[in-house]
């Protein structure tokens, strides 16, 4: 299976002036196409930071290797693109290959649900076919398409966020604790539908979660996460590696 992400010694740290802070280290991770990965760990362990780097919206401070080989796309050295500040190129890759579901949904409040979902497709000039309607039906939000996000329930907003992230058929779906704000039953329902969709579309899924039980139920591969204080306890270092 094609390796989509190949990361070696990727570091991101957030250290204050007095030297106290957090450091995320990725010694070695390889994620293959169509894999379903869970980043599991407690709050503050760097799950969102790693997801943001994988979504190309956060630059690593150091990277020996940070390659992306999206299915149906060109190979890119993401580390070099960040170093050269090739923001436009990074946004092109994001636009074409990545869908991202934020914990809060991240829907634009001034667009209807349909317009939110259509946005990535329109940016890619994809044709107006029936895919929005069929995706909405699968996710159970087809009756909400003409409403503004503010009128939806939390569960419906997350379903809409998934629909937006999937509407342009990306090869990679990243989700940052997408069901954290939902009750367990609704969360389970949504994730079950999403898993069905991404398996059908052969999408690589990487999701962050602090709920082990939830992850085991979805049969996701987890990355091993370890953390320890370093630099005389002034820096909290978290490591993610292939389990």
């Amino acid at each position: 299976m094609t390796v989509v992400y190949n990361l070696k010694n990727v570091v991101k740290q957030r250290v204050s002036d007095d030297g106290i802070g957090f450091r995320l280290v990725v010694p070695d991770i390889q994620i293959s196409a169509q894999e379903n990965i869970a980043l599991v760990g407690h709050s503050g362990c760097g799950k969102s930071t790693l997801l943001d780097m994988l979504a190309l919206i956060l630059a690593p401070d150091e990277s020996e290797q940070f390659d992306l080989h999206p299915v149906g796309g060109k190979d890119d050295n993401i580390g070099q693109l960040w170093k050269r500040s090739r923001q436009s190129h990074l946004s092109q890759i994001r636009k074409r290959h990545i869908g991202y579901v934020l914990q809060s949904g991240g829907l634009l409040p001034y667009l209807t649900v349909r317009e939110n979902i259509e946005l990535p497709r329109k940016l890619l000039k994809l044709p107006d076919d029936d895919s929005i309607n069929s995706l909405s039906r699968v996710l159970g939000i087809h009756r909400q398409l003409d409403k503004l996000p503010g009128l939806l329930s939390a569960g419906e907003r997350q379903r809409a966020a998934f629909a937006r992230a999937l509407s342009h058929r990306p090869s990679i779906l990243l989700a940052d604790e997408p069901t954290a704000a939902l009750d367990p039953i609704t969360a389970q329902k949504i994730m079950a539908v999403v898993m069905e969709v991404i398996r059908g579309l052969k999408i690589t899924l990487i999701t962050a979660s602090h709920d082990w039980a939830h992850v085991y139920k979805m049969e996701l591969r987890t990355l091993r996460q370890e953390s320890e204080p370093v630099a005389d306890g002034r820096i909290y270092e978290s490591r993610f590696s292939d389990g």
Binding site: I57, S91, Q92, K95, R96, G106, L108, L123
Partner: peptide
């Protein structure tokens, strides 16, 4: 800033 960041997330260029 958050909404502008969402636009960048979905692929709008900085300019």
């Amino acid at each position: 800033r958050k909404e502008l960041s969402v636009l960048r997330l979905v692929g709008f260029k900085s300019g």
